[in-house]
Design a protein around this nucleic acid. Structure first.
Lengths: 358, 358
DNA sequence: GAAACCTCTGCAATCGATTGCATTAGTTTC
DNA sequence: GAAACTAATGCAATCGATTGCAGAGGTTTC
């Protein structure tokens, strides 16, 4: 009843199987080095005692934590949490645990980033946030790089890190072209947050597509925004007061697109009848608002899986490539209900019977 | 250049400060036991060497990981990720790391739940998922409980665990009453997933409110659903074919409410003009769709913070209360745009000027 | 049939911190 | 001024696994 069973150690297994602890250890980590009979006795002993290796002891000896640290700007954001999901699964399948550090840039209280490494709690860092202090980061990686590191989603310009990301510029071009193909001529853009790499890449893609089609961009069509819904809604407020306003908008991501559409409605405009909208990301949400959102799908699960896999390869690899590796995944255009041909240019809507029928 | 600096150990600090490692250890963990001068020399030495305690060594010796494991059904779901955010912050502020185990119930490949404990990787478990195999869980906790465990959000019926949750039943009652107060008489409900405790609690709250108001519940008004958007949309398909259909719906959560509203639109019905809808949770999304969703706000951040705090208290506490502790947080009614007075009962809408104005 | 070579196993050091016990020096008590 | 404390520190064992080295026994090679 009050008998407290201690968790079994390798000693217990060794005693039970009548071998030394060294043999038990070898039987578990490199079975081919142990004779078949002994191996059988040991696995029986493991079964009976219910032995599980103590990770702390192993970490101490091998200087390895079998854990990766994922640093992200906002777990609460579903864009990241789906990636985290994929990361967690890939890591688990390779025997690694996942520690999360949220709100990375501001993370200076409590356990600090460096400490995670120095204290041997983690073996590698997966950075899902490009807006990080480069200097601070370089301190971690030093030369020769002691810290396996992969930057995913975003990219830190001119920094020698391995990256996994999607083809943001091209995808933005593709999204804009979709609007052009539908017949839109005045096309606007809601920007991401200032100073973010993705913001720049997507805006440039938009500009390239417009230029390629020989269409002008009026500066006031490019609205300040951000990656949150609220930013999109605020942009809608400014949008409606544009004199000769666009008939279509390419938003920097799905959240701002959703907020924008909601803001349009609030001001009495409809989507897609009055304004077509394309988003970016393809959040689960995108398919389930009304009308369903046309967007560029980022392969988030693949991204998480690949990034985690690459990080673990890096951790386990003997030699670390000095040349940073860049992986680019491609996005996919998902056409749904928020894009349509532009409204008839001049005549008032009264011509259309659809409005009456409701 | 090729000089590989080893990470400093307590030995290095001891040598530098000219004391034994024992003294360094004490200076760091119980400073009052070391003379002021020595303490000063040691902190100087720590500063110079850049020492950080090796967590593996500490864990091994103290049988403590300073890490908690958070098991959740779906990180990708923003409901959970906001909670995880709060948990992570609370844990970090108390010097704990957070390991995540996603899709808990199915987690049998890779690292298994038990192993996390037996291998001494984590000190406690925060369970955000009630639909877990009780037997399997009891194996973990045994008697006397070796594993500090807190169940948050959901509750495992008849299981002797500490819980932190919100007042689901009461909140559901409150949400339904809001609809009744607006004048609705035929009020339906979209249920959560079968077999979930929350599903039952919310449905019962709905039923209580109806009963208290002397209103009947027609069985076909209670629609099968789930906690995903898709479930809400599917429910809308069945909803429209109800003969004498409700003028209002209380959905089991925000996601199903959003999917439902989207489905209504798809079938030519409007919210709130034709059907009022109340959700549950108050996701960020709720305020940003159009019309903004009326819902019951669950204090998710507080819930995560409190649960994590309680778990760490449990881990660090000398004695573990044998009596399970139940904490209940209260929800808040947030009235937005998806609820309105019911449409005029008989006359066709042509009477109402509002419809023409748009 | 001696030398060389495997295969399998055990011994014991090691990873880096914590902590029970012992020791030294200084202080208080009667 | 001896006994009894107290404060500050060091010694060395300990946590549990891994691994370099070496030895025992057997097999192959020439």
């Amino acid at each position: 009843m009050t008998l407290v069973k201690k968790t079994p150690t390798i000693q217990d297994v060794a005693r039970f199987a009548n071998v030394s602890t060294a043999t038990v250890s070898r039987a578990l980590s490199s079975p081919e080095r142990v004779s078949e009979q002994t191996r059988a006795r040991i696995s029986e002993a493991v079964r009976v005692t219910g032995y599980t290796p103590n990770q702390s002891a192993r970490s101490l000896r091998q200087r390895t934590a079998r854990t990766i640290l994922v640093a992200l700007p906002d777990i609460g954001n579903s864009f990241f949490s789906v990636i985290l999901d994929a990361v967690e699964r890939e890591a688990a399948s390779r025997g690694y645990g996942v520690l999360v550090a949220n709100r990375f840039p501001r993370m200076d209280s409590g356990l600090r980033m460096r400490d995670y490494f120095l204290s041997n709690r983690v073996d590698g860092l997966l950075l899902l946030d490009g807006s990080v202090d480069l200097e601070q980061l370089m301190m971690l990686t030093g030369d020769p790089t002691p810290v396996p590191l992969i930057v995913a989603c975003e990219e830190i310009p001119n920094a020698p890190f391995h990256t996994v990301k999607t083809d943001n510029g091209y995808a933005a071009e593709r999204a804009t072209r979709h609007l052009i193909d539908l017949g839109h001529r005045r096309i606007g853009h809601i920007r991401g947050p200032d100073g973010n790499v993705l913001t720049a890449e997507r805006e440039q893609g938009y500009a390239r597509a417009m230029q390629a089609a020989g269409l002008p961009i009026c500066p006031e069509w490019v609205l300040a925004g951000g990656f949150e819904m609220e930013a999109g809604r605020a942009a809608a407020g400014r949008f409606i007061s544009i004199a000769d306003r666009p008939t279509a908008i390419f938003a920097a991501n799905d959240e701002s697109a959703v907020g924008f559409i909601s803001g349009l409605r609030q001001h009495g405009l409809d989507c897609p009848d009055d304004v077509s909208v394309v988003g970016f990301d393809d959040l689960v949400l995108a398919a389930h608002i009304w009308p369903p959102l046309t967007t560029m799908r980022q392969p988030r699960a693949a991204l998480g899986r690949i990034a985690a896999g690459a990080l673990i390869d890096l951790i386990e690899g003997e030699r670390r490539s000095r040349v940073p590796m860049h992986m680019v995944l491609s996005s996919e255009m998902i056409v749904r209900g928020t894009t349509a041909r532009p409204p008839a240019p001049t005549a008032p809507a009264s011509l259309s019977p659809a409005l009456v029928v409701r």
